[in-house]
Write a protein that binds this DNA or RNA. Structure first.
Lengths: 226, 226
DNA sequence: GTCTATAGTTCGATAGAC
DNA sequence: GTCTATCGAACTATAGAC
C-alpha cells in the first residue's frame, strides 16, 4: 500500500475523530447547560455556543432538543445503573446462597450514584436527574419509567429478600423515600455548606455516601411495624 | 347617609373585591403553571390565559415574572413554616422543661408540609418547592436561603437538643437528608403508584406522613457513631 | 385597574451552499 | 459533516387609551 492509501486512511481516521468530537462536545455542553438551567431554561443557541459549533449541527446529530435531552439521560443512566447492577449481583454472589446485609445492598445503590460526582459530568448529571425525578410532566415520567423503573424493581426485590419482616407497602415506601433522599442530596446545592458555615461540604463524596447509607439502612429497618 | 353614599360604599367594596380577585387569580394560575411546567417552562402568556386576564395586568400587580415567582414562594413558605414553628414550640412547651421526643419534633417538621397536600395549592406548591430545592442557580439559592434557612436552623437546634449523642456533622447531614427526602417525596410524581401497580398512592397524605416520620426518626438516630 | 397593541428579543427548526 | 442565513412563532415587557 502506497503513501496515497495511507493518506486516505489517516484522513478518514481524522474525519471520524472530528465527527465523534463534534457530537461529544455537543452532548457535554448540553449536559452542563441542562444541569444549570434545566430543560426549558436551556436553548439550542446556548448549547451551540458552549459546544463551539453551529446551531444546525445539533439538529443534524441529535435531531431535536427533546431527543438531545433523552440521549443524555440514556447515556448516563445506563452507565450508573450498570455498575449498580454489577454491585448488586456481587452482593448476592458473595453471600453464597445466603442473604447479603442490608448495608451491602444499600452501598450498591448509593455508591455508584454519588461517586459519579468525582467527574464533572457526574455532578452535572446529578442535577439533571434531581430535576427530572421531581417533575410530573408526562415526558419526564416517561423518561423515569424507561430508564429508572427497571433498576428500581431490581433493588425493591433485593430489599424484600433482606428485609423479610417488612410488608409490601413498607418496602415500596422505603425504596421511594431512599431514592428521594439520594437523588435530592446528589444535587449538591451547597446548602449544607451554607448552613454549617462552611464546616461541611456536599462535595465530599465519601462523607455523603457514609451518611446516606447509614441513614437509609436505619430508616428502612425502622419501617417495620413490629 | 343617603342612597348615593351607599352606592359609593358598595361600589368601592366591589372594586376592592375585584382587585383582590384579579391578583389572587393570577397568583393561583401561576402556582398551577409553575408547578407543572417549572419557572422557565411557564410564560406570562400562559399565566394570563389561565387567570383569564390581560397579560399587562400581571406586570401591574406582580411587577415581573421573577417577582411573581417569589410572591408565591413567600406566601406559601410563610404559611407552612409558621405552622411548623407553632408545632415545634408546642413540643417544647408540653415537655415542661424536659426534652420532647424526636418523633414529636419530626412530626412538627413533616406534617404541616405533607398535609398541605389536602388542598390543590398545596400539591402545586410542593412541586414548585421540590424543583426549587434541587436547583443550584444563584436566584434559587437566594430564595431557599431567604425563605427556608431560618426554619432549618430552628429545627437543627431542636434536633441537637433531643439527639445529644450526635456530632455537629451528623446533625447537619441528618437534617439535610431528611429535608431532601421530605421535599422530594412531596412532589408526588405517582411513581410509587406505578411501581406498586396501583396498590399504593402518593396522594395518601396520612400514609406518607407515617412512613416519612418513621423512616426519618430511625435514619437520624442511626447516624450516631456510637 | 384593566385593556389593546406592539416593540424588541429570542426561540426551535430548516433550507441550501460547501 | 459543517456552515450561514432565515423563517415563523413565542417570549417578556411596556406604552398608552379608557
Amino acid at each position: 500500500m502506497g503513501p496515497i492509501g495511507q493518506e486516505i486512511l489517516i484522513s478518514e481516521k481524522i474525519k471520524k475523530m472530528a465527527v465523534t468530537k463534534a457530537k461529544d462536545s455537543i452532548l457535554e455542553a448540553a449536559e452542563r447547560l441542562f444541569a444549570q438551567h434545566g430543560y426549558s431554561g436551556t436553548s439550542m443557541r446556548m448549547v451551540a455556543e458552549e459546544a463551539g459549533v453551529a446551531q444546525a449541527l445539533i439538529h443534524y446529530h441529535c435531531k431535536s432538543k427533546e431527543h438531545l435531552y433523552e440521549m443524555i439521560i440514556e447515556k448516563r443512566s445506563t452507565m450508573i445503573n450498570q455498575i449498580r447492577r454489577q454491585e448488586l449481583k456481587r452482593c448476592f454472589d458473595e453471600a453464597e446462597g445466603g442473604v447479603p446485609s442490608l448495608e451491602e445492598i444499600m452501598q450498591s445503590f448509593v455508591r455508584p450514584a454519588i461517586e459519579s460526582g468525582r467527574y464533572s459530568w457526574g455532578r452535572d448529571f446529578s442535577q439533571i436527574l434531581a430535576k427530572l425525578a421531581v417533575s410530573d410532566e408526562t415526558r419526564s415520567r416517561e423518561l423515569v419509567h424507561k430508564y429508572y423503573d427497571p433498576i428500581a424493581r431490581e433493588f425493591i426485590d433485593a430489599f424484600k429478600k433482606v428485609l423479610p419482616d417488612l410488608s409490601h407497602s413498607e418496602v415500596y415506601w422505603g425504596y421511594l423515600i431512599t431514592t428521594s433522599a439520594v437523588v435530592s442530596s446528589m444535587a449538591r446545592t451547597g446548602r449544607i455548606n451554607r448552613l454549617s458555615d462552611g464546616s461541611l461540604d456536599d462535595g465530599n463524596n465519601e462523607q455523603m455516601i457514609v451518611r446516606l447509607v447509614q441513614y437509609a439502612v436505619n430508616g428502612m429497618r425502622g419501617l417495620t411495624t413490629l
